[in-house]
């Protein structure tokens, strides 16, 4: 018999990621800081992956990445691929290598988001022949976006930790 708590938990994560996607895409909801707006949907996927199995983490990374691809409208699969692999790795590390706490969440989040935004800059900005001043773009747009997105980690970590602890069978 499938674990009904797990189904409810996964449903809650899915709704969370969808709501965050809609909120981040809605004009004017998140104020611009240094010309940047956050991408909390990726932060949420990393936070979820810390509390679930590696395959579940991968699935939520996949969802968050697909939504990010959809928002960008360029190449479907780019962020999905990165987020799925990174969230799988987070799941494995959280189970075998590291303690799950706010500090590790921040460090993992910083590393993964730095990778994702760096690749985003490389593939979508530097490799576009129309674009100029790549270093300026990296420092003035992508770096503030990275910091702004990472700033969501504490709240999303605590939020998903609450989900993971509260929506479980009492015996666990």
């Amino acid at each position: 018999m499938p674990d009904k708590f797990k189904i409810i938990r996964y449903f809650a994560y899915t709704v969370e990621i969808l709501v965050l996607y809609v909120v981040e895409q809605t004009p004017g909801l998140f104020p611009e800081l240094f010309g940047a707006r956050p991408v909390p949907v990726l932060t949420a996927a990393i936070a979820v992956a810390m509390f679930e199995s590696e395959t579940a983490g991968m699935a939520f990374g996949l969802l968050a990445g697909l939504l990010t691809d959809l928002g960008m409208g360029n190449t479907l699969g780019f962020h999905a691929l990165l987020a799925a692999v990174f969230c799988y790795a987070v799941g494995v590390m959280a189970k075998n290598l590291i303690q799950t706490n706010l500090l590790t969440a921040l460090l993992l989040g910083a590393g993964i988001l730095a990778f994702v935004f760096f690749f985003q800059w490389l593939f979508f900005y530097v490799f576009n022949p129309h674009n100029t001043a790549p270093w300026y773009a990296l420092t003035s747009r992508y770096f503030p976006r990275f910091v702004y997105t990472l700033a969501f980690m504490p709240i999303l970590y605590l939020f998903n930790r609450a989900f993971a602890l509260l929506i479980r069978p009492p015996a666990e």
Binding site: S53, E54, T55, M58, L76, G77, L81, V85, G91, V92
Partner: peptide, 18 residues
């Protein structure tokens, strides 16, 4: 592990979609 095989499958499919 099944999880790793699943990851490889997902990566393969996503690369195709990409």
């Amino acid at each position: 592990s099944t999880g790793f095989k699943l990851l490889l499958g997902v990566v393969f499919v996503l690369f195709g979609v990409l």
